[in-house]
Amino acid sequence: MTDIIWGNGSQVLTKDSFVLNVTHRKNGNKENYSDSEKIKITSADLPGFPHNQQEWAPETLQECIKDAFLKCEVDRREEGTLLAKVSHSGVGGY
């Protein structure tokens, strides 16, 4: 089973990485996660963020993840950074 963490997007580091302020962790996660994690996006499903990686840019990422509530399905950790599929987590309303 994939480890999953949720939280709010914070500082954008590059066109495909950012800092997540972790608020929720899936019960049964194999690894431990701190309250602040660096995330490198392997694939994204975020409103307004291009599916095509060639179109990713720091400005667009900033607009889409800053403060947004995000779900990160963790693939692995490399040199302290989590490689994860990043998506919006449900919605805040109808």
Partner: peptide, 16 residues
């Protein structure tokens, strides 16, 4: 009124 910084109160699947 909702404001973007309230997203820290989000529940995982729906709402706040």
């Amino acid at each position: 009124n909702w404001k973007k910084t309230d997203e820290k109160y989000r529940k995982i699947e729906f709402g706040y």
